[in-house]
Amino acid sequence: MGNIDIALKEVMTIDGALGVALVDFNSGLALGVLGGGKDLDLTAAAAGNTDVVRAKMRTMEILNLHNESIEDVLISLTGQYHLIRLLTSRNGSGLFLYVALDRKRANLAMARRQLQQVERNLDV
């Protein structure tokens, strides 16, 4: 479990990071959370974003996009970015990283790059 904690701490070093969760999209359960608070319930966000991931996967299946895979999903709010990064490693299959970013402080391109780095180093 230490590796998950390290990965979550790395994500929280991203400029503007408000909270992060590592989520199993088969169950909707968060395997780890860091940050958040009363205005950002990461457990609820994990469950809700599981529905987003599942819906996109069903849509890709309907569209017959079998040679494609989801790298990340971006939801832009007026004050925040919510970024979902599906893990592609063999050990991370079925998991995603969810991070909420303060839109005023975050650099979206850099955040995506840092999430890719965290994913490469994460062994679950």
Rank of each mutant, 00 (worst) to 15 (best):
L97Y: 06
V20Q: 11
T78E: 13
R90P: 14
N26M: 11
L34P: 09
A30S: 04
G79R: 04
L77I: 00
G16V: 09
E71P: 01
D24V: 07
L40R: 03
N67K: 14
I75W: 01
L34A: 07
L86A: 10
V118L: 02
T59E: 08
I70Q: 13
L95A: 12
L31F: 13
L63V: 03
L87H: 14
G19Y: 06
G92L: 04
R58A: 09
L86V: 15
S69V: 09
N67W: 06
L77G: 02
A47L: 12
A109Q: 00
V73T: 10
A100E: 08
L115H: 02
I75H: 01
G48L: 15
G19E: 08
N107L: 02
Y81S: 00
Q117Y: 06
E61T: 15
A21I: 01
H82Y: 11
G37R: 03
L63W: 11
Q117G: 15
N26P: 03
N107F: 06
L29S: 05
A109T: 00
R54D: 06
I84S: 12
L63D: 04
L86M: 12
Q116D: 04
A46M: 02
S27M: 02
T43N: 04
A45K: 02
G92E: 12
V23A: 02
L83G: 05
L95W: 09
R103G: 08
L31D: 15
R113D: 07
T78I: 14
G37Q: 01
R54Q: 03
E71F: 03
N49E: 14
I84K: 05
R105W: 12
L97V: 03
H82E: 03
A44G: 05
D51H: 12
K104V: 13
D51A: 11
L63N: 13
G28T: 07
L34D: 06
S76K: 05
Q114H: 14
A100F: 10
Q116E: 02
F96K: 07
Q117R: 14
G92K: 10
N64R: 14
A30V: 00
D39H: 11
L95N: 03
L74S: 00
T78G: 01
V73K: 08
Q117W: 02
D51I: 15
E68Y: 13
R85N: 00
V20M: 09
A109H: 00
S69D: 12
F25N: 11
T78D: 12
D15F: 01
N49F: 04
N64F: 00
L63R: 10
A46G: 10
L42F: 15
G48S: 09
F96P: 13
L31C: 05
R103F: 01
K56G: 03
G79C: 08
D39G: 06
R105F: 13
K104F: 10
V53N: 13
I75E: 01
G16R: 06
H82M: 09
V99T: 04
K38Q: 11
L87G: 11
V20T: 15
S89T: 11
L86R: 12
T59C: 01
G19V: 08
A111G: 11
S69M: 05
K104Q: 05
K38Y: 03
V99E: 05
I70F: 12
L42R: 01
L29D: 05
M57G: 05
V53I: 14
L95S: 06
